[in-house]
Design a protein around this nucleic acid. Structure first.
Lengths: 227, 227
DNA sequence: GGCAAATGTTAGGCTTAACGAACAATAATG
DNA sequence: CATTATTGTTCGTTAAGCCTAACATTTGCC
């Protein structure tokens, strides 16, 4: 419709758009009302209403019982929110000394309160970072995400030596666990084997040379690239 | 009632409390519903309702048509909000390079979004500052404001040499004007004369040795202390 | 391919924070 | 000191977001 700034959207609308975009960032899983409700911690009826409203505003394409997709304008706003979120996380870690497992919730609130001007200043202060503390790419101001690379650890070829490029920030609990094990962006490791029916992946950490068994949720949350 | 953290109050409640507290920081003018409505940009009926609710929660003392005063608990929350606001302003200027005339509105929004943890980290990062960019004292975490000092320029004795300790941040327009003139916290000047019926105060800036005439609103917004 | 389970939508309410209009109380003025 | 002007309060609505309950649609399985 028009060039309305993302700050003009309600907090709820911003959350919806960001979530829809994020759901397709690392996999092609279609976004459903149920998934959104679960991730946002609200009832499906609430999401259904909300999506209907976004559709009326031309930010998502959605026919009743049909799939949910962002329009170009919706995607713009979504990417702007992701940029805010990831820059804020980077700021919290780099400037305020937060642990990388503590930043998600704080950024989740702040992203609705900061102005575009503040985000611009933050970006400059941080030296225009391209990755946030979890290794997620930070989109540029004009909406182009820096190219993601790599595959999920669960899908990496056994025997290969790889470096961690990103770790999903969805579960702080898990992040703390990873920290304990010494797993962080840029950590190098060798994929030893996948045991398919146990859904266990064994990796060998370089440096300490330790073997670690990871379950499916863990090896799905870690993305790696061959080195 | 209890030790509920300030973050549990609604954004509107936080604004009300902060405003009531701020109104009595530099003068004993009683806070009225009308004044609050004007400053918050809402209708008196809205404020009247809001105050009634705060009274029910035990945060303000207020009988219908009577005066509005903070309870001890209300004051605690109010001071916590003022601390947030002033630390955020300091951060925006010191870390992100904002001009001191640009920070008020941004801080006004952020103060509702930051956690106590973030405020603590910010305080440490900034070196536990005692004054914000306008010279306003930053209350400590336990609610004791650092002692304010000085008097309004409009009330300073003619002939005295003084330093600016604070400049009210209420009007960004005026702040920009002051910046132009070279008036900022710590600027030294001599009070030359007050012309009562014209409501003009003439000052001489040290350094550039310029004479400046200030009207009542300006000389009320500037606080000075003898040097 | 029909029926049950899973998923999505609609309808009706609740709460918060706003509004305007009508009313009540206090303050100011002749 | 009585009347008017100012200020404050109450009440009925509205809009967002959320909820539950009832209903509709799609999916998936035998």
């Amino acid at each position: 419709m028009d060039g309305m700034p993302v700050s003009d959207l309600s907090s709820a609308a911003q959350d919806y758009l960001k979530l829809i975009w994020s759901a397709t960032e690392w996999s092609a899983t279609p976004v459903t009302v149920g998934v959104m409700a679960e991730r946002l911690g609200v009832r499906p009826s609430t999401v259904s209403d909300g999506i209907k409203k976004l559709a009326r505003q031309g930010l998502v394409a959605h026919a009743p019982y049909g799939s949910i997709e962002l329009t170009d304008e919706g995607r713009e706003h979504a990417v702007a929110m992701v940029r805010r979120h990831r820059l804020l996380e980077t700021f919290l870690v780099d400037v305020l000394g937060y642990g990388w497992d503590e930043v998600h919730d704080e950024a989740e609130v702040l992203e609705h309160a900061v102005s575009d001007k503040l985000i611009g200043r933050l970006d400059r202060k941080l030296g225009h970072p391209t990755r946030d503390p979890h290794g997620d790419p930070i989109p540029t101001p004009d909406g182009k995400p820096h190219l993601p690379e790599g595959t999920q650890l669960s899908a990496a070829a056994a025997g290969g030596t790889v470096a961690i490029t990103r770790i999903s920030d969805a579960d702080p609990q898990m992040l703390r666990y990873f920290t304990q094990l010494g797993l962080a962006p840029d950590t190098r490791l060798t994929v030893r084997e996948h045991r398919p029916y146990a859904d266990v992946t064994t990796i060998r950490l370089h440096g300490p040379d330790r073997d670690i068994d990871l379950g499916a949720s863990a090896s799905d949350a870690i993305w790696v690239v061959a080195v």
